[in-house]
């Protein structure tokens, strides 16, 4: 994957943004120095980039997170360090945006400088197995809602269609057309299709622009 200075990950609630952001930050750290991941999620107090802290820090990725993330304080707090994203132009940054238009509101403060610098990609994450975005038409609606809320335009679509633990190569293959439909309905290029690393071998050559991902271990498993 090729990255501009800032990569914004946005999309429908529960489409897989945090997972992609963490995996992209790890991928970016292999390509460049001075990499950071900024958690601007003001929607979901559960399941944050902070859950992957050990892995990110081991890879040398700087975490920009609210001091209240993963605490019991249930407020939509943003990290004070978030301005580093637009003030420190040497920083290579992945931004994890909260779900839907409500989550994208948090970007508004950064939008003017990001537009001025014009060195960013903003990706629309789509999963055809999520209940409220199962058609390209619904995805296109979410796209406009998010763009209107944050004042930035998407530059590409990432197909993250998966069924959690039930995901097989078939699941991914059955979503290829959906990815294309979303790209067509939004007029945006399809940048990547995500796939769990273990399925990479099976799908290589069958689906273009695969982006391998490592999933988080669940605390309920031994």
């Amino acid at each position: 994957m090729r990255y501009k200075r800032v990569t914004l990950i946005a999309g429908h609630y529960g489409s897989g943004k945090t997972n992609i952001a963490v995996n992209m930050a790890l991928d970016l750290a292999k390509q460049k120095d001075n990499v950071a991941i900024a958690d601007l999620d003001i929607i979901n107090p559960y399941y944050r980039t902070l859950d992957s802290r050990a892995e990110l820090e081991a890879a040398g990725v700087r975490l920009i997170v609210s001091p209240f993330a993963n605490s019991n304080l249930d407020i939509p707090a943003l990290p004070q360090e978030m301005y580093a994203v637009v003030d420190d132009l040497s920083l290579n940054c992945i931004i994890d945006v909260g779900g839907d238009d409500t989550g994208a509101v948090a970007l508004g403060r950064l939008a003017p400088k990001l537009r001025e610098e014009d060195d960013y990609d903003m990706y629309l994450i789509v999963n055809r197995f999520r209940p409220l975005t199962r058609t390209a038409k619904e995805v296109a609606e979410v796209r406009y809602e998010i763009e209107a809320a944050c004042g930035l335009k998407f530059t590409g679509v990432i197909n993250d269609s998966n069924l959690g633990a039930d995901t097989t190569a078939e699941t991914v293959l059955s979503s290829v057309q959906f990815g294309k439909d979303c790209a067509e309905a939004t007029g945006l290029p399809l940048v990547a299709t995500t796939v769990e690393s273990s399925l990479m071998e099976e799908l290589a050559g069958k689906v273009p622009d695969l982006f391998p991902m490592k999933l988080q271990k669940r605390p309920i498993d031994l």
Binding site: G14, N127, F129, R130, P131, R134, L163, G164, D166
Partner: peptide, 8 residues
């Protein structure tokens, strides 16, 4: 919903 979906 005819097929499996991924839900919270």
């Amino acid at each position: 919903m005819a097929e499996k979906v991924l839900m919270k």
